[in-house]
């Protein structure tokens, strides 16, 4: 994030760090005890799913705090329109964790913007551990920045012939100041407060680098995907839990006993 500030602990309790091979690569957000929302391009097909780790309750990338939890990925569901109608269109991924997140003051879910959300005059924030300068400086502490939303017509005007901005996208940026998201913020949330409740309205997706403020950051528009998100959260079975060794032994003993009882009357 360019032009942001260090975030205090517990300020963005839904923020997630997606690690690949032990390094932060993308952001994400907690939307449920088993589910994280992120960008599809963070989970490319050629990546080894077992090399991903998900961290929640994290502020400083160097240290796990008292509330930090670590998770393995069970399943990644990429939106079916990803890269279909636009090189970065449908840039949404639902990540199911292998075990349940324990919520606390520092670890909480964000709400998903519904299709009828009205973003007029909304005050919105982006957060992430992405680059903090065009020279490539990386932060240790989670960064936050308040970013104004930009209408689709203005965003299309600003990008001109470079790229078409699709209806499933949302633009935000400050075309005067250097306040924007950057590489490494991908997958992270753009959230706005409505009536004391924080709604996620965007997922950091793409842009023309982060050096040119004239080109706003482009996010996946969460309200466009909210029905798809809710459908998969409701209809995907929770991950199967491995049986502890003792339970397996007990299970075998019970089945042997049942077999004996069934055979005994025949003797």
């Amino acid at each position: 994030i360019l032009g942001g500030a260090d975030a205090l602990e517990r300020r963005w309790p839904w923020q997630v760090s997606v690690h690949y091979g032990g390094f932060h690569v993308c952001g994400g957000s907690i939307i449920d005890e088993y589910w994280v929302l992120s960008a599809a391009h963070c989970f490319n097909r050629d990546k080894n799913m077992e090399a991903f780790d998900i961290y929640v309750g994290l502020v400083d990338l160097r240290f796990a705090g008292n509330h930090t939890q670590w998770f393995e990925v069970n399943k990644v569901i990429v939106h079916p329109t990803y890269e279909v109608y636009h090189p970065v269109g449908g840039d949404v991924a639902l990540v199911q964790l292998k075990s349940r997140i324990v919520f606390s003051d520092s670890v909480l879910p964000v709400c998903i913007a519904s299709p009828d959300v009205n973003l007029h005059n909304a005050t919105c924030w982006s957060t992430g551990w992405g680059l903090v300068s065009p020279q490539g400086h990386v932060p240790n502490k989670l960064q936050e920045v308040q970013i104004p939303l930009i209408s689709l017509p203005l965003c299309r005007l600003l990008y001109g012939h470079l790229s078409y901005i699709m209806p499933d996208m949302l633009c935000a940026g400050d075309i005067r100041d250097m306040r924007t998201v950057c590489e490494g913020d991908s997958g992270g949330p753009l959230v706005c407060e409505f009536n004391h409740t924080w709604l996620q309205v965007g997922i950091v997706s793409w842009g023309r680098g982060c050096v040119y403020p004239m080109y706003p950051a482009v996010y996946a528009r969460v309200s466009y995907f909210s029905k798809w998100i809710r459908y998969h959260m409701e209809h995907t079975p929770p991950p199967s839990q491995p049986l502890p060794a003792l339970a397996r032994v007990l299970g075998v003993s019970v089945s042997v006993l049942a077999a004996l009882l069934a055979v005994l009357p025949m003797l």
């Binding site: 300020r11 939307i31 005890e33 003051d105 709604l199 409701e234």
Partner: peptide, 27 residues
């Protein structure tokens, strides 16, 4: 549909935790 979980009134899918609320006040 055994795995289907109820949706709370807050819109969160976690039965006991409301979404979008944090426990510190903004500036």
């Amino acid at each position: 549909m055994a795995h289907r979980r109820p949706r709370s009134q807050s819109g969160a899918w976690s039965p006991d935790v409301a979404c979008g609320h944090r426990y510190i006040q903004g500036k």
